[in-house]
Design a protein around this nucleic acid. Sequence first.
DNA 1: CCGCATCCGGGGCGATACTG
DNA 2: CAGTATCGCCCCGGATGCGG
Lengths: 224, 224
Amino acid sequence: MRTYGQYCAVAKALDVLGDRWTLLIVRELLLSGTARYTDLRNGLPGIATNLLAERLRELESAGVVLREEAPPPIATTVFRLTPRGEQLRPLLDELGRWGIPYMTEGPAEGDLFREQWMAWPAELFLTDSHPEGPPVSIELHAAESPLVIETADGEVHVRRGRATNPDVVLRGAPHPILGLFSGQMGLEEARGLGVEVEGDAAALERVLPAAPVLVPPGASESRP
Amino acid sequence: MRTYGQYCAVAKALDVLGDRWTLLIVRELLLSGTARYTDLRNGLPGIATNLLAERLRELESAGVVLREEAPPPIATTVFRLTPRGEQLRPLLDELGRWGIPYMTEGPAEGDLFREQWMAWPAELFLTDSHPEGPPVSIELHAAESPLVIETADGEVHVRRGRATNPDVVLRGAPHPILGLFSGQMGLEEARGLGVEVEGDAAALERVLPAAPVLVPPGASESRP
DNA sequence: CCGCATCCGGGGCGATACTG
DNA sequence: CAGTATCGCCCCGGATGCGG
């Protein structure tokens, strides 16, 4: 493990987490709960397989990741975060919050996308405007595998998978969906960009922001 | 700029911040407010000068760092964070919080230390147990350049420099000072490890935690 | 198919020297 | 003081192989 050699809390944290791909592996485990090696590879497009194996070993010996041999009939190894690893959630939330402006600008050329990455924008932007009402569940299809957005106790939660009986199903490309979530775009405008709303649109509007959320510009200021 | 190529807020943030040394440069600027190139080098022992220059350029073009030509008679360039860079403070706080356990274990062999790095443990551990009383100021000498710990409105703040009229002056090695701050170590025990308290010890005890703060173990679980 | 290990080319990184 | 220049080295990325 390459170390900064500084007796400083921030530097020590980066000694463990600062290598390339490391925090993205933590992201995937936070989003998945448990994941197989192949699931991680799929959620981390671009990673070299030897790097994934090496990072998992490092995170394991740092007490952040746990490797478990699943019992039959699964018969595969699954990875999950330790409690110490779970403590990284606020850190990843801050990273996501700071990175949101780069997302609202739309995907860059060649950017890949996985449905679960929408979890940060969703939990950041969406709020339950009618918390005393019955819970709503929204199924989101922005890529290949759906996401469920649910309200509970006035809070909005996101998880992977399908809803048993969704109030509304939302389909569309990530960027217009994000515009909808951030309030930068109205429902009609989103429809014009291919977003489809199937079911009870009121359930959707209940969690959408009433006014555009102020997102600081993320792009660079150009220099002479 | 090397990018992960993922349309994800966390990945986008790491595209900007994930390179080696980058977040430590932000740390120094958060701690210093403004800093000259040489100040940054001093606060980042181990960094190669070309890397510091390159990172500063990247951070500048990312809108995180501002480079200013100070007017005469200073006649030097100073660096500071933009508002966008200031927004990284919660992120660095989370990094510091997560890294604290590695600090309480004591410095590793060859670890270097700078006084200002004590800011995170201090603001994390210390609280004003008597907020309605008059403000107290504590001057801390754990290395070469002193730190001031002050209470204001029931909050504890840390800044570089000296106090005009400190209630108490605290001197000692970083590790026992940290033990004191985290409540793992009593005042008498700290004295035995070379910590000196000069002035009103009650002012110090006012901000120290009454009971040991629970710090999760940071060390790795050893494997077979 | 799953979970890697190995090999190899390129570039980011680290250390030192040098300069306006 | 504030960098640029240079040069190894090792980390990273991509491809392939391979045992369970």
